[in-house]
């Protein structure tokens, strides 16, 4: 109930702000949405794992990094486009995710939740450093002409390619919603996420569900890794900053609230770009992210107390 009211207030605020800024500084909205799309599409798979398996996966960004290198190798070797390579790469990362789950995370599920956190921290270090050994820290980037796709409206010229991430984020939310509400496996996953013990009692194989969700989420992040290389250079540490960002977005949306991640990303993307648009506030663009997170979390806790 409180969640829904929150969402409504969010929506109203965003609409008002967007309308105002769109007239005043159109680029803030354009670039804000593009940034939001990227944030959200990386955070959503992590939100899925956190919402259902209840694990903070500190190796989340590293899975994306592994997928990015995989795509890079496939694309340079076969001369294909990352948008083609993303499907096999997603399948391979899903498999890798499943194996990692079976070998490590499953063993730590019964331990306190902090163990899983540190376990994935160890995974993150190992993956980053392994990539460093294999590829060195020198960055790699493939060039694609379509990345510079441009649109001009009057005086204003801006890149449109990054809207791809907005589309991906929206597709992810819709896809996950369909999966979780329409399919048997999805319904089981939802039930396990809400109450693993109860789900086990009614005969749902919790372990299998966890494995499936973990594989699905790593597959999604693998797909993101493939598309990520069109936009960004890759290097061993490329994924780790996104882990924290994703974690913060999920907390802001509220754990288990996947569409909320989209809203939180839009709010952050636009606020960040708003600050970046002015000389005096440019340097402070980073802070808005964290101030908003604290405000939202504290606000929700106070509201929760009252209700």
């Amino acid at each position: 109930m409180a969640n829904k009211r929150n969402a409504a207030i969010f929506a109203a605020l965003i609409v008002a702000a967007v309308a105002g800024i769109l007239v005043w500084r159109p680029t803030v909205i354009i670039y804000g949405l593009q940034a939001a799309g990227l944030y959200a599409s990386i955070a959503i798979p992590m939100g899925l794992i956190l919402g259902i398996v209840h694990i903070v996966n500190l190796a989340h960004g590293e899975f994306m990094m592994v997928a990015a290198y995989l795509t890079y190798m496939v694309c340079t070797a076969l001369g294909i486009d990352p948008f083609v390579a993303m499907i096999p790469v997603a399948l391979v990362t899903a498999l890798v995710g499943f194996i990692v789950y079976k070998l490590t995370i499953r063993q730590a599920l019964k331990a306190p939740e902090l163990n899983q956190l540190i376990l994935t921290f160890g995974l993150a270090i190992s993956l980053t450093q392994l990539a460093n050994l294999l590829f060195t820290s020198q960055t790699r980037k493939m060039s694609f002409g379509y990345v510079s796709a441009s649109l001009s409206i009057g005086e204003l010229s801006f890149g449109v390619y990054n809207f791809v991430f907005v589309a991906i984020a929206v597709l992810m939310v819709i896809g996950l919603r369909l999966f979780l509400t329409r399919t048997t496996a999805g319904k089981a996953a939802l039930a396990v996420g809400q109450n693993p013990k109860g789900a086990a009692i009614v005969g749902i194989d919790v372990d299998k569900t966890y494995g499936l969700v973990f594989a699905l989420a790593t597959g999604m992040v693998g797909m993101m890794g493939a598309i990520f290389i069109t936009r960004s250079s890759i290097f061993p540490a490329v994924g780790s900053p996104f882990t924290m960002k994703s974690f913060c977005l999920i907390a802001m949306a509220g754990i288990g609230n996947i569409p909320g991640i989209l809203g939180a990303s839009v709010l952050l993307g636009i606020s960040e770009n708003f600050l970046k648009a002015f000389r005096e506030t440019r340097g402070w663009a980073d802070i808005v992210f964290f101030v908003l997170i604290i405000t939202v979390i504290l606000g929700r806790s106070i509201k929760g107390k009252k209700a």
């Binding site: 680029t27 354009i30 670039y31 593009q34 940034a35 801006f158 890149g159 936009r231 960004s232 250079s233 290097f235 540490a237 490329v238 780790s240 900053p241 996104f242 960002k245 770009n273 970046k276 648009a277 440019r282």
Partner: peptide
Amino acid sequence: AAFGGGDYAS
């Protein structure tokens, strides 16, 4: 981008 940025639009 080395520290998680990589957005040069602004």
